[in-house]
Design a protein around this nucleic acid. Structure first.
Lengths: 126, 126
DNA sequence: TGCTGATATGCAGGCGGGTCGATGCTGTAG
DNA sequence: CTACAGCATCGACCCGCCTGCATATCAGCA
């Protein structure tokens, strides 16, 4: 685990995209897959959606447990994964832990997945 | 399994996005997660990348086995998952099976993940 | 200091998924 | 018709992950 973290930042720089010209390297594929794995779960997608639609764009665990229908430890687990993937940021205020999404994070993923205006004849990339 | 298929099309219509206003429903979350799951694998990301960068934008299994370093059955397995997710299309010509990516597919996912220009106060979407 | 409530962590069970070898299927070549 | 090559499918193994229960940690409060 922990294969993510600053993975997003690392991919943002050189703009590693599976839809660009050159085939992506194995390491880049694993980093991107790691972030996508964090997204590829119904509970975590709903968590992101719930947090985003919360009054101040933030929510604590106690607010998320009921809507998800999952136990508190499980919710904390998912929040941990999303945070480690760089999709969420955590702020502890008193007894509560408030989570909000990192705006640029998902946008970065969307960019990586967006084909850069494929130039008609993209053949012979070498 | 098989929870995908035309999942992409179903999500495209009502523009279900986890980053829009209202929290997404469980069913929508599961559909989107299903498609993302197909993407969230290093081997499959490399397959998409390899196919996209191939001379004619298409490739057969025999061309993909070596670069991936995986067995032929495993490659076929991944191609099957990507195809069922609506990300690839298959065309059998003679003995060979040529795969090419569905352009709108990944673009659709990117759209779903792109925050719709969050309108300052995005609350109360109703 | 001791207690209560909000989170995080450890642990274990169960299921899904990635991988490969073996096999079946289908065109193509001879 | 037979042999062979490219793919798909099957069965099985193994690892990782989602989940909940139990427990630890920490902040606020009496």
């Amino acid at each position: 685990m922990e294969y993510v973290g600053t993975a997003l930042a690392e991919m943002t720089m050189p703009q590693i995209s599976p839809l660009a010209g050159e085939p992506i390297e194995r390491a880049d594929a694993e980093r991107l897959a790691g972030v996508l794995k964090a997204l590829a779960d119904p509970a975590r997608l709903r968590l992101l959606s719930l947090i985003q639609s919360a009054p101040e764009g933030e929510a604590c665990v106690c607010d998320l447990t009921a809507p998800l229908g999952l136990s508190q430890p499980t919710v904390s687990h998912h929040l941990r994964i999303l945070t480690e993937a760089g999709l969420l940021e955590r702020e502890k205020r008193g007894v509560w832990a408030y989570y909000r999404l990192v705006p640029s994070a998902i946008a970065t993923i969307a960019d990586l997945l967006t084909p850069p205006r494929k130039r008609a004849t993209k053949r012979a990339a070498r």
